[in-house]
Computed example of a mutant assay.
Amino acid sequence: MGYTVGQVSAFAGVTVRTLHHYDRTGLLSPGDRSRAGYRRYDDADLARLQQILFYRELGFPLDEIARILADPQANALEHLRARQRQLAEEIGRLQRLTEVAERAIEVQQTGVSLTPEERFEVFGEIAFDLTYATDAQLKWQGSRGHREAMARASAHTKEDWRRLMGEAAAWRTELLAAFDDGEPADGERAMDVAEGHRLHVSRWFTPCPPDMHRRIADDFAVDARAFALVVPPTQQRPGLAAYLAGAVHANASRRTGADAGPDAGADADAEAGAGTGSAASVPHAPQVGKDR
Protein backbone atom coordinates (compact mmCIF):
# COMPACT_ATOMS: atom_id res chain seq x y z
CA MET A 1 0.00 0.00 0.00
CA GLY A 2 2.63 2.55 1.02
CA TYR A 3 2.32 6.17 2.15
CA THR A 4 1.53 9.28 0.15
CA VAL A 5 3.75 12.34 0.04
CA GLY A 6 1.28 14.21 2.25
CA GLN A 7 1.26 11.47 4.87
CA VAL A 8 5.05 11.27 4.99
CA SER A 9 5.30 15.04 5.18
CA ALA A 10 2.91 15.10 8.14
CA PHE A 11 4.53 12.46 10.35
CA ALA A 12 8.17 13.16 9.36
CA GLY A 13 7.93 16.90 9.86
CA VAL A 14 9.26 17.88 6.44
CA THR A 15 7.53 19.78 3.67
CA VAL A 16 6.14 18.22 0.53
CA ARG A 17 8.47 20.50 -1.43
CA THR A 18 11.46 19.01 0.45
CA LEU A 19 10.35 15.46 -0.38
CA HIS A 20 9.94 16.42 -4.03
CA HIS A 21 13.45 17.89 -4.00
CA TYR A 22 14.89 14.72 -2.49
CA ASP A 23 13.18 12.76 -5.26
CA ARG A 24 14.47 14.99 -8.06
CA THR A 25 18.05 14.78 -6.79
CA GLY A 26 17.89 11.03 -6.25
CA LEU A 27 18.48 11.33 -2.52
CA LEU A 28 15.14 9.70 -1.72
CA SER A 29 13.12 8.33 -4.61
CA PRO A 30 10.05 6.38 -3.44
CA GLY A 31 10.05 2.76 -4.50
CA ASP A 32 6.49 2.67 -5.74
CA ARG A 33 3.84 4.69 -7.55
CA SER A 34 0.08 4.55 -7.43
CA ARG A 35 -1.94 3.69 -10.54
CA ALA A 36 -2.41 7.41 -11.01
CA GLY A 37 1.35 7.93 -10.89
CA TYR A 38 1.59 9.42 -7.41
CA ARG A 39 4.60 8.71 -5.19
CA ARG A 40 4.17 5.94 -2.63
CA TYR A 41 6.74 5.48 0.17
CA ASP A 42 7.33 2.05 1.64
CA ASP A 43 9.01 1.08 4.92
CA ALA A 44 12.48 1.03 3.35
CA ASP A 45 11.95 4.56 2.02
CA LEU A 46 10.92 5.75 5.50
CA ALA A 47 14.02 4.16 7.02
CA ARG A 48 16.18 5.99 4.47
CA LEU A 49 14.36 9.25 5.19
CA GLN A 50 15.06 8.79 8.87
CA GLN A 51 18.77 8.48 8.10
CA ILE A 52 18.66 11.58 5.89
CA LEU A 53 16.95 13.62 8.59
CA PHE A 54 19.44 12.40 11.20
CA TYR A 55 22.44 13.50 9.13
CA ARG A 56 20.73 16.74 8.15
CA GLU A 57 20.08 17.57 11.81
CA LEU A 58 23.81 17.22 12.42
CA GLY A 59 24.47 19.72 9.65
CA PHE A 60 25.73 17.42 6.92
CA PRO A 61 25.24 18.88 3.42
CA LEU A 62 22.91 16.90 1.20
CA ASP A 63 25.60 15.86 -1.25
CA GLU A 64 27.63 14.33 1.59
CA ILE A 65 24.55 12.55 2.90
CA ALA A 66 24.01 11.12 -0.59
CA ARG A 67 27.60 9.83 -0.70
CA ILE A 68 27.26 8.18 2.73
CA LEU A 69 23.99 6.46 1.85
CA ALA A 70 25.14 5.46 -1.64
CA ASP A 71 28.15 3.50 -0.39
CA PRO A 72 27.25 0.39 1.63
CA GLN A 73 30.89 0.19 2.76
CA ALA A 74 30.95 3.80 3.97
CA ASN A 75 32.19 4.11 7.52
CA ALA A 76 29.39 6.17 9.06
CA LEU A 77 31.27 6.35 12.37
CA GLU A 78 34.18 8.17 10.75
CA HIS A 79 31.80 10.64 9.13
CA LEU A 80 30.13 11.23 12.48
CA ARG A 81 33.43 11.74 14.26
CA ALA A 82 34.53 14.24 11.63
CA ARG A 83 31.23 16.07 11.97
CA GLN A 84 31.60 16.05 15.74
CA ARG A 85 34.97 17.80 15.43
CA GLN A 86 33.47 20.37 13.06
CA LEU A 87 30.58 21.02 15.41
CA ALA A 88 32.91 21.42 18.38
CA GLU A 89 34.94 23.98 16.44
CA GLU A 90 31.75 25.79 15.41
CA ILE A 91 30.47 25.80 18.99
CA GLY A 92 33.76 27.30 20.13
CA ARG A 93 33.57 29.97 17.43
CA LEU A 94 29.98 30.85 18.35
CA GLN A 95 30.88 31.02 22.03
CA ARG A 96 33.65 33.47 21.21
CA LEU A 97 31.25 35.54 19.11
CA THR A 98 28.73 35.48 21.95
CA GLU A 99 31.36 36.73 24.37
CA VAL A 100 32.32 39.52 21.96
CA ALA A 101 28.66 40.49 21.56
CA GLU A 102 28.08 40.45 25.31
CA ARG A 103 31.19 42.54 25.82
CA ALA A 104 30.04 45.06 23.21
CA ILE A 105 26.63 45.27 24.87
CA GLU A 106 28.21 45.90 28.26
CA VAL A 107 30.45 48.63 26.89
CA GLN A 108 27.51 50.28 25.12
CA GLN A 109 25.26 50.12 28.17
CA THR A 110 27.72 50.92 30.96
CA GLY A 111 30.38 52.93 29.17
CA VAL A 112 33.14 50.88 30.82
CA SER A 113 35.57 49.41 28.30
CA LEU A 114 37.42 46.99 30.58
CA THR A 115 37.70 43.23 30.37
CA PRO A 116 35.66 41.22 32.91
CA GLU A 117 38.88 40.42 34.76
CA GLU A 118 39.85 44.11 34.89
CA ARG A 119 36.37 45.04 36.07
CA PHE A 120 36.58 42.57 38.93
CA GLU A 121 40.04 43.85 39.84
CA VAL A 122 39.04 47.52 39.74
CA PHE A 123 35.41 47.53 40.91
CA GLY A 124 35.42 44.73 43.45
CA GLU A 125 31.99 44.58 45.11
CA ILE A 126 30.51 47.24 42.84
CA ALA A 127 28.53 45.18 40.34
CA PHE A 128 26.95 46.20 37.05
CA ASP A 129 23.25 45.38 36.75
CA LEU A 130 22.67 45.32 33.02
CA THR A 131 18.90 45.44 33.52
CA TYR A 132 19.35 48.87 35.08
CA ALA A 133 21.88 49.93 32.44
CA THR A 134 19.47 48.81 29.72
CA ASP A 135 16.57 50.70 31.28
CA ALA A 136 18.71 53.82 31.53
CA GLN A 137 19.97 53.43 27.97
CA LEU A 138 16.46 53.14 26.58
CA LYS A 139 15.09 55.96 28.72
CA TRP A 140 17.83 58.53 28.21
CA GLN A 141 19.46 57.66 24.89
CA GLY A 142 18.26 60.95 23.40
CA SER A 143 19.83 63.05 26.13
CA ARG A 144 22.94 65.05 25.28
CA GLY A 145 24.15 64.64 28.86
CA HIS A 146 23.72 60.87 28.65
CA ARG A 147 25.71 60.67 25.43
CA GLU A 148 28.48 62.81 26.90
CA ALA A 149 28.65 60.79 30.11
CA MET A 150 28.82 57.49 28.24
CA ALA A 151 31.48 58.80 25.87
CA ARG A 152 33.61 60.08 28.73
CA ALA A 153 33.15 56.88 30.72
CA SER A 154 34.18 54.71 27.76
CA ALA A 155 37.31 56.84 27.32
CA HIS A 156 38.50 56.24 30.89
CA THR A 157 41.51 53.97 31.19
CA LYS A 158 41.99 51.22 33.71
CA GLU A 159 44.09 53.61 35.79
CA ASP A 160 41.36 56.24 35.59
CA TRP A 161 38.85 53.75 36.93
CA ARG A 162 41.29 52.62 39.59
CA ARG A 163 41.53 56.22 40.79
CA LEU A 164 37.78 56.63 40.66
CA MET A 165 37.12 53.56 42.72
CA GLY A 166 39.76 54.52 45.26
CA GLU A 167 38.06 57.88 45.63
CA ALA A 168 34.70 56.12 45.82
CA ALA A 169 35.87 54.04 48.76
CA ALA A 170 37.04 57.17 50.55
CA TRP A 171 33.74 58.90 49.82
CA ARG A 172 31.70 55.96 51.11
CA THR A 173 33.71 56.07 54.32
CA GLU A 174 32.69 59.73 54.77
CA LEU A 175 29.05 58.98 53.93
CA LEU A 176 28.82 56.00 56.27
CA ALA A 177 30.58 57.87 59.07
CA ALA A 178 28.17 60.79 58.82
CA PHE A 179 25.19 58.44 58.78
CA ASP A 180 26.44 56.26 61.64
CA ASP A 181 27.32 59.32 63.74
CA GLY A 182 23.74 60.51 63.44
CA GLU A 183 24.58 63.65 61.50
CA PRO A 184 21.39 65.21 60.10
CA ALA A 185 20.94 64.88 56.34
CA ASP A 186 20.57 68.66 56.08
CA GLY A 187 23.62 69.35 58.24
CA GLU A 188 26.89 70.79 56.95
CA ARG A 189 28.78 67.52 57.16
CA ALA A 190 26.23 65.50 55.17
CA MET A 191 25.80 68.29 52.61
CA ASP A 192 29.57 68.44 52.11
CA VAL A 193 29.59 64.71 51.38
CA ALA A 194 26.75 65.22 48.88
CA GLU A 195 28.63 68.10 47.25
CA GLY A 196 31.65 65.86 46.79
CA HIS A 197 29.48 63.47 44.81
CA ARG A 198 28.04 66.24 42.65
CA LEU A 199 31.49 67.61 41.83
CA HIS A 200 32.73 64.17 40.94
CA VAL A 201 29.88 63.48 38.52
CA SER A 202 30.70 66.78 36.83
CA ARG A 203 34.39 66.03 36.79
CA TRP A 204 34.27 62.53 35.37
CA PHE A 205 30.96 62.14 33.53
CA THR A 206 28.83 65.16 32.70
CA PRO A 207 28.05 68.64 34.09
CA CYS A 208 25.80 68.13 37.12
CA PRO A 209 23.90 71.24 38.27
CA PRO A 210 22.01 70.97 41.57
CA ASP A 211 18.63 70.13 40.03
CA MET A 212 20.15 67.25 38.08
CA HIS A 213 21.87 66.02 41.23
CA ARG A 214 18.47 65.89 42.93
CA ARG A 215 17.22 63.57 40.20
CA ILE A 216 20.25 61.30 40.54
CA ALA A 217 19.69 61.09 44.30
CA ASP A 218 16.00 60.39 43.84
CA ASP A 219 16.98 57.44 41.64
CA PHE A 220 19.19 56.12 44.46
CA ALA A 221 16.26 56.36 46.90
CA VAL A 222 13.78 54.42 44.75
CA ASP A 223 15.94 51.98 42.77
CA ALA A 224 18.21 49.58 44.64
CA ARG A 225 20.09 48.84 41.41
CA ALA A 226 21.17 52.47 41.16
CA PHE A 227 22.16 52.78 44.80
CA ALA A 228 24.23 49.57 44.58
CA LEU A 229 26.47 51.39 42.09
CA VAL A 230 27.60 53.80 44.81
CA VAL A 231 27.27 51.67 47.95
CA PRO A 232 27.53 47.88 47.59
CA PRO A 233 24.88 45.86 49.46
CA THR A 234 27.37 44.65 52.07
CA GLN A 235 27.97 48.25 53.19
CA GLN A 236 24.38 49.50 53.04
CA ARG A 237 22.29 50.41 56.06
CA PRO A 238 18.50 50.72 56.31
CA GLY A 239 17.59 54.26 55.39
CA LEU A 240 21.00 55.11 53.92
CA ALA A 241 19.74 55.73 50.38
CA ALA A 242 17.02 58.08 51.65
CA TYR A 243 19.60 59.80 53.87
CA LEU A 244 21.88 60.44 50.88
CA ALA A 245 18.93 61.73 48.86
CA GLY A 246 18.06 64.09 51.69
CA ALA A 247 21.63 65.35 51.88
CA VAL A 248 21.73 65.92 48.13
CA HIS A 249 18.47 67.87 48.20
CA ALA A 250 19.68 69.98 51.11
CA ASN A 251 22.99 70.64 49.38
CA ALA A 252 21.23 71.50 46.12
CA SER A 253 19.15 74.10 47.95
CA ARG A 254 22.31 75.45 49.55
CA ARG A 255 24.17 75.57 46.23
CA THR A 256 21.41 76.90 44.00
CA GLY A 257 22.05 80.54 44.78
CA ALA A 258 25.81 80.23 44.27
CA ASP A 259 25.93 77.88 41.29
CA ALA A 260 22.71 78.47 39.37
CA GLY A 261 21.68 81.52 37.39
CA PRO A 262 18.08 82.28 36.40
CA ASP A 263 18.08 79.61 33.66
CA ALA A 264 19.72 76.84 35.66
CA GLY A 265 16.47 75.05 36.40
CA ALA A 266 15.58 74.89 32.71
CA ASP A 267 19.05 73.61 31.84
CA ALA A 268 18.74 70.91 34.45
CA ASP A 269 15.34 69.88 33.16
CA ALA A 270 16.69 69.66 29.61
CA GLU A 271 19.55 67.46 30.72
CA ALA A 272 17.76 65.51 33.43
CA GLY A 273 18.37 62.33 31.51
CA ALA A 274 22.09 62.68 32.04
CA GLY A 275 21.50 62.03 35.71
CA THR A 276 19.62 58.78 35.82
CA GLY A 277 20.48 57.69 32.31
CA SER A 278 24.22 58.03 32.26
CA ALA A 279 26.02 59.05 35.42
CA ALA A 280 23.82 56.66 37.35
CA SER A 281 24.43 53.80 34.95
CA VAL A 282 28.13 53.61 35.72
CA PRO A 283 29.80 53.50 39.14
CA HIS A 284 29.81 56.90 40.85
CA ALA A 285 33.15 57.47 42.50
CA PRO A 286 32.73 60.84 44.18
CA GLN A 287 35.72 62.75 45.41
CA VAL A 288 35.33 65.00 48.41
CA GLY A 289 37.13 68.26 47.89
CA LYS A 290 37.54 70.92 45.26
CA ASP A 291 36.92 70.31 41.61
CA ARG A 292 40.15 70.14 39.64
Rank of each mutant, 00 (worst) to 15 (best):
D267K: 07
T256K: 14
D269L: 08
S278L: 11
E271P: 01
G277P: 02
D267Y: 14
G273I: 02
A279E: 10
R254M: 04
G273R: 00
A270L: 09
D267G: 11
G273E: 01
A270E: 08
P262W: 09
D263Y: 08
G277N: 00
G261H: 01
A274S: 10
R255M: 14
A274D: 02
A279T: 10
A252N: 05
A272Q: 12
D263P: 00
G257D: 13
R254T: 00
T256D: 15
D269N: 08
T256L: 15
A280T: 12
S278D: 11
A270Q: 02
P262C: 06
S278K: 09
P262L: 08
E271I: 04
A266Q: 07
A252G: 09
A272L: 13
S278Q: 11
A252C: 07
A250N: 09
D263G: 00
T276H: 12
R254C: 03
G257W: 02
D267P: 01
S253Y: 14
G275F: 05
G265K: 00
A250E: 09
A274W: 00
A270K: 04
N251L: 14
N251E: 15
A268F: 03
G261M: 01
P262Y: 09
P262E: 13
A279H: 08
G273S: 01
G257L: 08
N251I: 12
A280L: 14
D269P: 03
G277Q: 02
D269V: 10
D263W: 00
A264I: 00
D267F: 12
A250I: 03
E271L: 12
S253G: 15
A280K: 10
R254D: 05
H249R: 14
D269W: 06
E271D: 13
D259A: 13
D269K: 05
A272D: 13
A274K: 06
P262T: 07
A252I: 01
A268D: 09
G277S: 07
G273W: 03
G257R: 12
G257T: 12
G277V: 05
G261F: 01
N251G: 15
D259E: 15
A279M: 12
G273A: 05
A266P: 04
D259R: 13
A250L: 05
A258P: 07
A264T: 03
D263T: 07
D263I: 00
E271K: 07
A266E: 04
A268Q: 05
A266D: 02
